[in-house]
Amino acid sequence: MNAAAVIVDRLGVAIGGRPLLDGVDLTVAFGEVLALVGPNGAGKSTLLRAVAGDLPHTGSVSIDGALSGSERPILTARRRAVLEQDNAVAFGFRVGEVVRMGRAPWRGTNRADADDTVVARVLDQMELAARIDQTLPSLSGGERARASFARVLAQETPVLLLDEPTAALDLRHQEAVLDTARAHARAGGAVVVVLHDLSLAGAYADRVAMLADGRIVAVGTPTEVLTADRISDVYRQPVAVIPDPNTGTPVVVPTRRPQEVHS
């Protein structure tokens, strides 16, 4: 395994006296994609927000060698970029303006010279170059989601923290976004991504961490973690797990009763 990008040690989070995470240990290496999976309420988004430094917590988190809360926020913003579930924009910013916001941590540095080039590149990656002057509210939900992801890419940080980046996307753009995340890891970065689609996690993650009730119940390769017995137990839904015919990665299929056919 490569050097550690993210180290989570005995992490705990409680809100309003209610424990949401308890004793979470996790290490993410540079060069890998780690998928966080689990049923609703398991603590996936809470864990991602705590790693990002956006929630008070017990235990410790370090990103790219820096302990959470030990440095100025702008320096943290140069280490990790965060895509949250809710990316609502309060004002009618244009797409190009939203993406350029990702360059803010580099203002006043020599990397700011590349702002125009970076913004153009990520807009092209997300197939939004033709939308650069449109306001964000005028876009479809999927286009808004891709614009938010483009802003994260424009930040050019070694660590990406992504909360359900595929939720609003069609099939082709789901694949494109996760392929881009995979490329970021191949280039030496690290990605932590919350996914509800277990088959996507199986296809794109190097490792999967499954959460339930605020704890990690399994960590390992997709094949090790995404077993029919474990998924059926944690999600309380019977499933079958079959290998993808092209890649061999696990594909998760809910077990359903045959539907009656009415003539």
Rank of each mutant, 00 (worst) to 15 (best):
D206T: 10
G17M: 04
A35W: 12
R78F: 00
A3R: 13
G53R: 00
V219Q: 06
G12S: 10
R172A: 07
G220M: 07
R103Y: 00
L211I: 09
R10C: 14
A185Q: 06
L211F: 07
L48V: 06
A150I: 00
I231G: 00
A150C: 04
V241K: 09
V99W: 00
G220K: 15
V217S: 02
P222C: 03
S199H: 02
R72M: 07
H262D: 03
V241H: 01
E97M: 10
G202S: 03
A90W: 02
G41T: 05
P254Q: 10
R49T: 13
L178I: 06
G188Y: 07
Q125A: 12
G248C: 08
L171Y: 09
H196P: 11
L55G: 01
H173M: 09
P165H: 06
T247N: 10
G102W: 00
T247W: 01
V95W: 00
A150G: 06
H173S: 03
F93V: 12
R131W: 06
V122D: 09
V98P: 04
R146G: 00
F91T: 12
A201W: 14
V98K: 00
P243W: 01
D133L: 11
D54S: 10
T255P: 11
F93G: 06
V208H: 13
N40C: 04
A130S: 11
D206C: 07
G108S: 04
T46E: 05
G188K: 04
A50S: 15
G108A: 15
Q237W: 12
G12I: 10
T135S: 04
I242Y: 01
G59L: 06
P238H: 14
E260H: 11
Q125W: 12
G189V: 01
Q155H: 02
L75R: 14
P137W: 03
G108L: 01
L11A: 09
P165W: 15
L178F: 00
A104L: 04
V252N: 07
L47M: 11
A176N: 05
H196I: 15
E156C: 14
E164A: 08
V89Y: 04
L171C: 07
P105K: 08
